[in-house]
């Protein structure tokens, strides 16, 4: 009986130490693989604001997909003349959204998600959340987009 419990105990302790050892041994390799995903890659810079040219030339109804830092973004000028900019990453499964001129809303080609142009709110299709908005200002006739 005593021998039995001792055997169980020893087996248990061996298991615990084996698991600890396995965790310890794999930790460096896990860090090796994951840390590269958090560092900035060569040529990647943190962008806080970007100029998109003259507001005069960007007529109501026009839109533009552009690069904001390392992420895609979208600028739309609605018919009322107001500028709207968003992170162009669909909140559904991450495709890049675009402006639909005919329907005057923002649209994702992957599964047909639809967003409101003025607010970025998800209107139809599978997206669960609104688009992330960026700030747009017009300074001396120049469109400046910056992080909200």
């Amino acid at each position: 009986m005593i021998a039995g419990t001792r055997r169980v105990f020893v087996r248990w302790i061996t298991g615990v130490f084996a698991a600890l050892w396995a965790g310890m041994a794999s930790y460096p390799f896990f860090r090796y693989l994951i840390s590269g995903t958090k560092k900035k890659q060569a040529g990647e810079e943190l962008v806080t604001s970007i100029s998109l040219g003259s507001s005069e030339e960007f007529l109501p109804g026009a839109s533009k997909n552009f690069k904001f830092g390392s992420a895609p973004a979208l600028l739309v000028r609605s018919e009322d003349g107001a500028f709207h900019a968003y992170n162009a990453i669909c909140t559904h499964l991450g495709c890049t959204v675009q402006y639909n001129e005919e329907k005057k809303n923002i649209w994702c080609a992957c599964h047909g998600g639809v967003y409101d142009t003025a607010s970025g709110k998800n209107l139809a299709g599978p997206p669960p959340k609104p688009l992330k908005a960026l700030n747009v200002e017009v300074k001396e006739g120049e469109i400046i987009v910056s992080r909200a």
Binding site: N65, T96, A109
Partner: peptide, 19 residues
């Protein structure tokens, strides 16, 4: 990476049922 997804985009046929 900064252009919008093209219209009519679909996955390979064996993922199509799930899609």
């Amino acid at each position: 990476p900064f252009a919008p997804a093209p219209a009519g985009i679909k996955p390979e046929w064996y993922f199509l049922a799930m899609f």
